[in-house]
Design a protein around this nucleic acid. Structure first.
Lengths: 334, 334
DNA sequence: TTGGCAAGTTGTTTAAGGGTGACCATAATA
DNA sequence: TATTATGGTCACCCTTAAACAACTTGCCAA
């Protein structure tokens, strides 16, 4: 990598002349600017980002802590973050917490040494279960703003981007009720997450508002064979409507119902949280609640960058953006 | 963030005394070391990473350029890279090329200003189609080593981690032939990628070695409705065996066959490239060629870190690691 | 016509940002 | 007096920017 020093030496001027020339300073003559720029071009000079970061005390880098990169929704949010960040000249450093509190803490600590200007994160499963928030507060008090998305810690004062989980599932359940479904089941592999809980509550509310139905909930852990569990659930409860809280269960429910000889959507109607990509993995396609993951990511990045560029913003003046889901009707409902 | 300067001031010693004390230098007395460490602990001092990077001229950061984060395989590789990198104290900066040459170039350039010590990447689709490699060579000549995985540019001299695509598909086709399949089709939505071509060649070889079959290839573009295309393909050719080159097509082929009233695996046998996660999206589950994406990522990271830590390694002394796939038999084959 | 001075033009010097480490200085001990 | 223990000084990594220096030019008065 060429440095200012090398250019300066070759041009027989001082280092800062080169610097100023490249920054189009008024203080440098036109021809000098031209000479400098030509040589810089020739050597493909790029200001050293590390030196710049040190000087300006900001890295133009965002730390992103994702619980699970293999989760399609989270990956999509990351995609949205990356795009928005790049648009504004920010890089992203990605850490994966693997749903554990330890790795989340570690990532936060490790990057809080000047590596990043702020964080975007979704809270790890373990962290939500243990309801631990001190590591977040510590980072914020160190001057590193945090934006949380999807799974948020309500006790932490920071910008947030969330989904209308409760309403989305409530409305989805209403759709199934309107179809005349009598035994609507709820399948979730994320019942210990904040969003999972909200979704289940939305389901419960709708069911309890109907006259004569009781909630039928299947909770699956990540270790279990979901195909088997779902089959048993559908069979033993004579389910005729399914709402799936996670991205996989909806598709699996459709395939299971079909393998049981049922017709989807005639005998069983299914709605799930999923992307276009995954809803394609069943025939008929899964009617889906779309979370607009990319928008979530983009909004999170916007909030953080706005805060970073607005020095005098108060830490306590936080905002929460709610990204509305939309229900995409496909073949798995009437 | 606390700095050495602040600690030094509070302790009434010089900055470098603090630095040395924290690094357990022989030159500093035991009690001083103790005093310094205690205060550092109290203030939770962490050496500023940016300053360190500048001083030591290395960032302990790896640039990862991924064509598509929503591709489950690529996301899994990223997971493997992240884990291995973290293990060795490296951070990763992730850029997404979106399969375009421009963004790939841009990412490479943008990070080649001291932001990273080296790159791990998989070549973008457009780059492979246009067979452009200069941006890679430029980065390498600037002293930034590259490790390529999966989709590699053969004309670039660098470390590589690849999969035995050709053999994997050849062997998979042999499995179907042994089952007695008479009309084996090949479905690919990645025919313009290097790996897609290799897979197709493996299929062709096996088919041509059989006595009386001809290759039946369906190429799907990302825009098209794959469910429809696959249905037409299966119907018009009376396909009784399918090999899918990408992760989605296998699952879709099973679901399509079932929706056509066919029995899988009796009437149609299907093998695809997919992960455990996606192979769960059909009943029966998809018999899959596993690429061990995490291992690919880990190997790529190992190769890069090894090179970074081995100053005197020659640029031209490169190695290629082949990660063998394994065939996981599930219900979609006999 | 020319000396002198102000203003303008164009660069340079220097400090700063945080950390490390080679080298130097000082005091105490042998 | 020489040696050792301990800590300080300084240069460096690369960039920026405030402060400063030097040179040119223009203008006016003597």
């Amino acid at each position: 990598m060429v440095t200012l020093k090398q250019l300066a030496k070759e041009l027989n001027v001082s280092i800062s002349t080169v610097s100023k020339a490249l920054n189009n300073s008024e203080e440098i003559g036109e021809d000098t600017i031209k000479r400098v720029k030509e040589l810089a071009e020739l050597y493909n000079y790029k200001p050293n980002r590390v030196a710049l970061s040190l000087k300006q005390n900001k890295t133009k880098t965002i730390g992103v802590i994702i619980p699970d990169i293999l989760n399609h929704f989270l990956a999509k949010v990351l995609f949205g973050i990356e795009r928005e960040a790049t648009l504004h000249g920010y890089n992203i450093i990605t850490c994966i917490s693997n749903e554990t509190l330890d790795k989340e803490k570690e990532a936060l600590q490790l990057l809080a040494n000047g590596s990043v200007d702020g964080f975007i994160l979704s809270v790890a499963q373990e962290t939500q279960i243990k309801n631990e928030v001190n590591h977040f507060k510590k980072a914020i008090s160190q001057g590193l703003p945090i934006v949380m998305f999807d799974r948020v810690a309500h006790d932490v004062l920071c910008d947030k981007v969330i989904v209308d989980d409760f309403d989305a599932v409530y409305n989805a359940a209403k759709v199934l009720l309107l179809e005349g479904r009598k035994k609507i089941g709820f399948i979730s592999s994320i019942d210990d997450l904040s969003v999972g809980k909200l979704r289940e509550r939305g389901y419960n509310k709708a069911i309890l508002e109907s006259n004569n139905q009781v909630p039928l909930v299947l909770r699956i852990s990540k270790m279990e064979d979901s195909q088997l569990k779902i089959k048993a659930f559908l069979e033993s409860n004579h389910i005729d409507g399914v709402i799936a809280a996670d991205s996989a269960s909806g598709v699996i429910a459709i395939n299971t119902a079909i393998s049981m000889g049922l017709n989807v959507p005639k005998d069983v109607s299914v709605i799930g949280f999923s992307s276009k990509f995954i809803s394609n993995h069943s025939i008929p396609r899964l009617t889906s609640i779309r979370q607009h993951a990319k928008d979530i990511g983009a909004n999170a990045a916007q909030l953080l960058i706005k805060r970073l560029q607005n020095k005098n913003a108060s830490d306590s003046d936080v905002s929460t953006r709610i990204i509305k889901t939309s229900l995409i009707k496909n073949g798995s409902t009437l």
